[in-house]
Write a protein that binds this DNA or RNA. Structure first.
Lengths: 145, 145
DNA sequence: TACCTTTGTATCGCAAACGATATAAATAAC
DNA sequence: GTTATTTATATCGTTTGCGATACAAAGGTA
């Protein structure tokens, strides 16, 4: 058995698992406000900056448009967002918040705190978090090129 | 705009993105040997310990059996593994490597090294990796309870 | 103007993930 | 020994994620 092929020696498996378990932890919180985790990400993008083309949302989330488009259609069907043709560039589809979508920001405001409680553990503290953030940002930067 | 609701302040989004980008980086390597990333994880489990019940594989990967069962069926259809009823406990399904599946370990032996190259970045070194591993293990431990 | 290339979205198909639920075998309770 | 409960898998339906591809609008180029 090659040492490198062992699951316990793999960074990737840890990230994959941590990501999935965190999404699961979000589930009950986001269910309350009627969002899935990827939909919550889209809403965070729009709360920061409304009226964005599909492409910009996709880039911000490191997703492809073929993932984002169906996501947005479901969110439109739920009444959280609206989609309209771009005026300058008719190829673009501009995504904007509906009143319902804007109002959701208030309801979601407690989610980060509640998640903070859920992921609270010895290894992640005020002191160590910035280092972890830098490492992940570096990794994401490397892989997204 | 609430500071905590910003994407850039979220650990979860970083993990989610890093995980996805790593899986994408695996894709061309695993395509060579005919596996998807989750299938590769299952193979790593079996290369370490053959003849495992579905449940044990699922637990090892922190997945549910309703995810693993279809995965295993596809891998069985590809001829990498075999599934048989447990002798002692007729409810169990024991998963074992086929000769083709065992032979794959040799072909996969270069994958960890190649992935190491792909994720190589300033922040992840011989020195910092153990710390990162501990942090993620702690997080996974906390969330999986 | 006509043609070519690029860009922005969308469609299609397949493989995860996972909640909810079903089923059968094993075990416990009575 | 029958009934109830637990346990091990599996089925179903929905949402992601993404490679491959299609298509129309925009921007060159001849």
């Amino acid at each position: 058995m090659q040492e490198q092929l062992k699951l316990d020696n793999q960074l990737c498996f840890r990230l994959y698992t941590a990501s999935r378990l965190i999404t699961q932890a979000y589930h009950p919180l986001l269910e309350e406000i009627g969002l899935t985790y990827p939909q919550y990400l889209v809403m965070m993008v729009l709360w920061e900056q409304d009226n964005m083309p599909v492409n910009d949302i996709a880039k911000r989330l490191y997703l492809e448009t073929n993932t984002v488009t169906p996501l947005l259609k479901r969110m439109e069907a739920e009444g959280f967002i609206a989609r309209r043709k771009g005026e300058k560039d008719a190829r673009q589809v501009i995504v904007s918040l509906t009143p319902k979508g804007r109002k959701l920001e208030g309801k979601a405001s407690c989610v980060p705190y509640q998640m903070g409680q859920a992921v609270a553990c010895r290894s992640i503290t005020e002191k160590t978090a910035p280092e972890l953030f830098r490492t992940l940002d570096d990794l994401i930067g490397t892989l997204s090129k």
